[in-house]
Simulated scan of single mutants.
Amino acid sequence: MTGRAAGAAGGAPAGSRAIVVNAPGTHRLVTGPVPEPGPGEVLVEVAAAGVCMSDREVYEGRRAPGYVRYPVTPGHEWSGTVVAAGPGTDPALVGRKAVAEGFRRCGTCERCRAGDTSLCSAAYAETGFTHPGAFADHLVVPAGLLHLLPDDADPRGAALLEPAAVVAAAVRAGAPEAGERIAVVGAGTLGLLAVQFLTAYSPAELTVIDPRRERAELACRMGATEARTPADSPEAHGYYDLVVETAGARTTAADACLLARRGGRVVLTGMFARGAVGIDPVHLSVSQLTVRSVFGAPSAAWSLAVRAYGTGLIDPAQLITHELPLERYTDALALVGGGDPKTGKVLLRP
């Protein structure tokens, strides 16, 4: 991992620090004034921020055009404490632990009014991609996007509530029922969180499929009933009532459809790159599959994830393997997607 970084000279930093990616492959650790929240906004002191593959894509310039705006401070998975409220914002929010939705939806279009806030018709806007994110000491977000946490919430686990909300959206789309046979394709962050959510529905079988045996076995410790590699799974084709795809690898969308029984349901949650293998339309129609996709999470899914976290139904902190300071931003990116099966979730801790 290469790049150019410059930080404040030794000693405690004055003001507020932030990672700024000026252009692909080039970043700085800058120190400036603490941001001020505007009307309807809050200032959050960041406690922890998760690093995911999309953050690496931003740094390497592989994010799809229109879905990033340079220069940018990345960081869309985070938790923190509200330390200031802007004009017209409830001052009682100050001092509360919180997370916030990433999509900056308009709230007035037809899709927003229907509750599908992740399908907002306005121009794409998301914290960490088009607006300053949480790889910083502080960030400013609209107060209307906040989800408050219990006072005793662990900020480490709470930093993973953004991917947990995506998984909550996938679970809602899949509509699992007790006693069903369910497969999760992929044992990364999304896959392991999916296992934790789906366990609560008392499936008859909950199988995790991942080429990394170490990751699949970890899923069994989190509630899966079985772990398989793709090579072990041909006999499982046409078997599962529900398949939740979380890997976003080249063939996993097509593979997930093959795993579902006739009349079954498939939810695609991974982020696919160009060149991914398409779904066979003949198989899709003959098998009468229901296929849904998830990109981000609507407000209702965020609420579900925060409730599940607050009640202990999910424990995202189990996924964390590395915690690094802001100064080691490029080290964190190198760990993410580096191929080591022992690397789980990586956090930056301002």
Rank of each mutant, 00 (worst) to 15 (best):
R96Q: 14
S118T: 05
L145V: 04
E36M: 06
L304Y: 05
H147N: 10
R307L: 09
V294T: 03
R261H: 02
C109R: 12
D151A: 15
A187M: 05
L326I: 14
A194R: 06
R261L: 10
E126I: 06
G50R: 13
T229Y: 02
I314W: 13
V336W: 03
A159N: 08
E205M: 07
T108C: 05
L304F: 05
S202A: 14
A187S: 12
A114N: 03
L161D: 04
L313T: 14
P91G: 12
E214S: 14
V21M: 10
G310H: 05
R111I: 00
A6S: 15
V282S: 06
L190R: 00
R292V: 00
R292A: 12
F295E: 02
C220P: 08
Y124C: 03
H147V: 12
A300E: 00
D340V: 13
G191F: 02
P350E: 13
L145W: 01
R111K: 15
S299D: 04
V267P: 02
T251A: 11
S121C: 01
A204S: 13
A64W: 04
L218V: 06
R328S: 13
G66K: 06
G270C: 08
A204E: 15
E36H: 05
V140C: 10
G102Y: 09
V185H: 01
T26Q: 14
P211S: 00
P35R: 01
G66H: 07
A100Q: 02
Y309I: 02
V291R: 09
G270S: 03
A5D: 08
V20Y: 04
V44T: 03
L160I: 04
G3M: 12
R96F: 08
G188F: 01
V208S: 07
D340R: 10
E177A: 15
V72C: 10
A165L: 12
L29P: 13
V171D: 01
E177G: 14
P298W: 12
L119I: 00
T199I: 00
L218C: 03
G75S: 05
D241C: 08
V20P: 06
A123K: 09
E205D: 15
D232R: 03
